[in-house]
Design a protein around this nucleic acid. Structure first.
Length: 202
DNA sequence: GTATCGATTAGC
DNA sequence: CTAATCGATACA
């Protein structure tokens, strides 16, 4: 299956975030293939985005956010969770899209083993659960999605008739008013309470 | 050096 | 609502 080209990622993260909704992520990191539809994402920018890890400039942790687009930015947080982003923008400009929730398509048994949860809609719901389900660690930080075993398929988004919705990002302290969280309205795999899965219709 | 805080989650 | 759990960050 064809992968999204680097040019897809090398744009403003808000544009990439919207364009990612409904597309299929594939992991061939383990022997068993896992694939899942992207249903919820958040865009993070650089110096002009106080909620971004890159707000205060380049550090060891956020270095790949400043690198070429189409790579994975994986970070460790709360002492126990790994979160998965795709790097955007041209090299030297920070930007990324956090994958917050996906709808599992292939590899359900492996996901259930890793997550120790049965319900399909809970396997990849929430950014920490995405990291756990895909078994990501800091070893995957910087992985190239255009050439590596973890990638996003270049096929038209399948949104199941749902109009993409947008609203404020979750769990941040600054820049709360910016509506840079995007999701497929009503999809059961979107994180948070049912009310959050509904939302507006931008 | 020490103190605080997470782009979170599960459980009560 | 809170505990879990540790790297990054802030500050003395």
């Amino acid at each position: 299956m064809r992968r999204l080209p680097r040019s897809f990622y090398a744009r403003d993260p808000r544009t990439v975030a919207r364009a990612l909704l409904g597309r299929v992520l594939v992991s061939e990191l383990a022997r068993t293939r896992v694939s899942a539809r992207i249903v919820e994402v958040e865009a993070y920018r650089g110096a002009n985005d106080p909620a971004s890890h890159a707000w205060r400039g380049r550090t060891a942790r956020n270095a790949v956010m400043f690198g070429p687009a189409g790579h994975a930015y994986v970070y460790f947080t709360y002492g126990m969770h790994y979160c998965f982003n795709v790097v955007c923008e041209r090299e030297g400009v920070a930007g990324a899209v956090l994958l917050r929730a996906l709808e599992p398509l292939e590899g359900l048994a492996l996901l259930r083993r890793r997550r120790r949860v049965h319900a399909r809609e809970r396997l990849l719901r929430g950014p920490g659960c995405v990291g756990q389900g895909l078994a990501l660690t800091l070893a995957h930080d910087g992985l190239d999605l255009v050439t590596g075993p973890l990638w996003i398929a270049d096929i038209p988004p399948e949104r199941g008739g749902a109009r993409p919705a947008s609203g404020p990002r979750i769990g941040i302290r600054f820049a709360r008013e910016r509506p840079w969280r995007y999701w497929l309205r009503g999809n059961a795999c979107v994180s948070g309470p049912a009310a959050r899965r509904a939302g507006d219709s931008r």
